[in-house]
């Protein structure tokens, strides 16, 4: 459960009553909620999904991989909340555990693509000689539609969550590098950077102190959209059988297995579908809110 450790900042968040400051400050919180309704709504939804992923064993689930041939394709009931699939596995447990894969893949791809993209973007923005070559390569990667690129990479390797993450990150990072390069190019002409150069600041320090902090806002906004897109691509890859290995319950896998039966037992497909859509929606809402709050220039453009 690496998601529990990496997202522990969210996981150990105290109860709402503890978060709410004393009455004197409550006005500020309410103002934040009123001014950023999408951040709050998206954040709350995402927090619920993260809690579900972490607390999966305690939410009335059974072993999501346990087979029960005698109890195949049961309709949803008090015993099997979301019914059972064609191998008799409990769909509710599979969907709850499936949230882990989506969240891990979403966050990991966002982090990996942002890190690699920032690195390439910085090199490209600062080293003129490499810029043309790097950007041509990025153009080339971007001219292969992301899902196809991920499919092609998955065809090369063994199916595993790690490979899914790498394949999607390769498809997503060129856009980050383009974004960061653009920010760097406009920043290096700014007086405060020129002043730093003139006063003899070394390059690494300029990047660390002056450039990177200014890339943070667009980078964060972009990372949320990559996260949403990665969740959809992971589910799509699993759905067509080129993603997460079938033994691991992921929303795409559950839907792929429910496909053959969907005309008679549509619930097997619909429950993971709803969870996937709600999770992606929460991330998109968060991203929209962050963009409006952090990057008014970008908000105006889209």
């Amino acid at each position: 459960m690496s998601s529990a450790t990496t997202r522990s900042g969210f996981a150990s968040a105290p109860e709402l009553a503890d978060v709410l400051p004393p009455p004197r400050q409550r006005g500020k919180v309410m103002t934040f909620v009123r001014r950023n309704p999408t951040i709050v709504a998206g954040g709350a939804l995402l927090l619920i999904m993260i809690l579900i992923a972490i607390l999966a064993p305690f939410l009335g689930t059974v072993d999501p991989t346990a087979l029960a041939p005698a109890k195949r394709t049961r309709e949803p009931s008090a015993q099997f909340w979301f019914g059972t699939d064609m191998l008799g596995r409990d769909v509710y447990s599979r969907v709850i555990y499936g949230s882990r894969i989506s969240l891990i893949v979403g966050f990991a791809v966002a982090a990996l693509a942002s890190a690699v993209g920032t690195f390439i973007g910085l090199i490209s923005g600062f080293i003129r000689g490499l810029d043309t070559v790097l950007m041509r390569v990025m153009d080339g990667l971007m001219s292969i539609p992301s899902i196809l690129l991920a499919i092609a990479l998955m065809a090369l390797t063994r199916a595993s969550v790690q490979n899914v993450i790498i394949a999607i990150a390769v498809a997503e990072f060129p856009r980050v590098s383009r974004l960061i390069r653009g920010v760097v190019l406009s920043l290096r002409e700014q007086p405060f950077v020129e002043a730093a150069v003139a006063s003899g600041t070394r390059m690494p320090m300029i990047i660390l102190k002056h450039i990177l902090p200014n890339t943070l806002a667009p980078l964060m906004v972009n990372a949320t959209f990559i996260c949403a897109s990665a969740m959809i691509i992971e589910a799509s890859l699993s759905f067509i059988g080129a993603g997460t290995p079938p033994i691991i319950p992921s929303w795409g896998n559950i839907m792929a297995e429910g496909r053959a039966l969907w005309q008679v037992k549509p619930y097997i497909v619909f429950f993971p579908a709803v969870f996937l859509s709600v999770t992606v929606l929460s991330v998109n809402l968060l991203g929209d809110g962050l963009r409006d709050a952090l990057d008014p220039r970008l908000a105006k453009r889209l």
Binding site: S236, F239, W262, P266, A273, S277, L281, L285
Partner: peptide, 22 residues
């Protein structure tokens, strides 16, 4: 628009097929 970005194509596909076809 937000819903459009958040609904994977296969989710919407099954929903439409269930409603309008089945």
């Amino acid at each position: 628009a937000v819903f459009g970005f958040s609904t994977p194509v296969f989710v919407l596909g099954y929903l439409l097929a269930y409603l309008f076809a089945l």
